[in-house]
Every structure is written in C-alpha cells, then in structure tokens.
Amino acid sequence: MQPRRKKRLFSMLLVISLIAGAVGAMLFALQQNINLFYTPGQLVQGLGEGKIKPDVGQRLRLGGMVVPGSVSRDATSLKVSFDLTDDSGEIATVEFEGILPDLFREGQGIVAQGILKSANVLAATEVLAKHDEEYLPPEVAEAVKGIRHVPPSQLQQQNRPQSNYGG
C-alpha cells in the first residue's frame, strides 16, 4: 500500500473513531437525563408488548389521578405522600418533600418526576398539576349544553356602571 493511501486510511479511521467516541459520550451523558413516562398501570404491569418494567433507581415521570383520601402530610415537615391511579385501577404511591402546586388536590391529574424507590413507590423531586380552563367533564358539558358562553371581557363591559362624565 502506498504511503499516501496509508495516511488517508489512518486519517479516515481517526475521524470515524472520534465521531463514534463523541456520539458515545453524548449518549452516556443523556442517559442520566432521559425520563420515561409511565402511568400507574404501566408501572405495575409493564410497558409495551414486552411488558418492560422500570428498574428501581431509574428516573421517570409518573402521571395519573390523585386518589381521593390518599393524601397524607407530615405535621412537622413538608413531606407529603399520596396515591395515583389510572383507568387500569392500579395504584402507585408518590412521596414528595416540598411545596405542592396550588392546583394540586384530590381527584386532580398530576405528573410527578423522580426516582423509583420500589416497584410502585416514586420518590418525587417535582410535582406538576395542570388544568385546561377549556376542559369540562362530560357530565358538566352535558348539563351546560344549551347555555351561551359569555367571555369575561364582555361580562366586565356589561356590568360596568355608566359614568356621568360622557364616557
């Protein structure tokens, strides 16, 4: 093999190995930040066709509805634990230390992010509760079907007292 070809081959192998090393380092660094989303049913029964369950110590996000009557607060600290459920009927426990969001309440949908302590217990580092102001439960939507919606901006204009100053 000619020296010029040996040099090109060596250069190409060096470039390919550097690229492979960089990709490997990025995947290793991202491995700690990948958070898979599970529902309580998927956490207990497994995810996908292979019924893959997360490992204890894995970072993940767990979403579901807070079970009414399951919220217990520690009287001396900010520790809170509560149960989550989904349509499968399975229950997972979330333990959190900190201030819960204002929208957190029993029966509310939440997403908790943290580390799995055991098969169905999550040590949460963050709890998110969100609602959509446009959402109506099916029963309420049926009850208000014939009522005309008036935006708040128009309500304020309708209820504003008339001014004597020509305004």
Score class of each variant (00 low, 15 high):
35 N>G: 03
123 A>M: 14
58 Q>G: 01
21 G>N: 07
93 T>V: 02
83 D>Q: 06
66 V>Y: 12
130 K>T: 06
63 G>S: 14
104 F>A: 07
95 E>P: 01
71 V>Y: 02
75 A>R: 13
94 V>W: 05
86 D>P: 01
167 G>F: 06
111 V>R: 13
61 R>I: 02
161 P>I: 15
41 G>Y: 13
14 L>I: 03
25 A>L: 13
69 G>A: 09
27 L>V: 03
114 G>A: 01
100 L>T: 12
97 E>T: 13
14 L>V: 12
156 Q>K: 15
13 L>N: 03
159 N>V: 10
158 Q>H: 09
138 P>F: 15
157 Q>N: 15
101 P>H: 07
15 V>N: 01
82 F>G: 02
152 P>F: 15
116 L>P: 06
136 L>F: 10
23 V>A: 09
134 E>R: 14
119 A>M: 09
43 L>N: 03
76 T>A: 09
27 L>H: 07
2 Q>G: 13
144 V>A: 08
156 Q>W: 10
124 A>D: 06
167 G>T: 03
42 Q>A: 15
67 V>F: 00
41 G>A: 14
29 A>L: 01
6 K>H: 04
75 A>C: 05
88 S>C: 01
19 I>N: 05
164 N>H: 13
130 K>G: 09
102 D>V: 11
54 P>H: 11
21 G>A: 06
42 Q>P: 09
86 D>C: 02
138 P>H: 09
61 R>A: 11
105 R>V: 09
116 L>I: 09
47 L>N: 13
36 L>W: 14
160 R>Y: 08
62 L>S: 02
53 K>P: 06
68 P>N: 01
113 Q>K: 12
97 E>F: 13
98 G>D: 03
122 L>I: 03
100 L>D: 04
44 V>K: 07
11 S>K: 10
38 Y>T: 10
10 F>N: 00
101 P>A: 01
11 S>E: 00
125 T>F: 07
16 I>W: 07
149 H>Q: 12
140 V>T: 15
32 Q>S: 08
65 M>P: 04
118 S>L: 11
59 R>L: 08
77 S>Y: 10
90 E>F: 07
160 R>P: 03
86 D>E: 04
159 N>G: 10
120 N>W: 07
105 R>I: 06
119 A>W: 12
98 G>H: 03
95 E>G: 01
136 L>E: 10
25 A>I: 12
71 V>D: 04
50 G>W: 05
129 A>E: 01
146 G>N: 14
124 A>K: 03
78 L>E: 06
63 G>R: 08
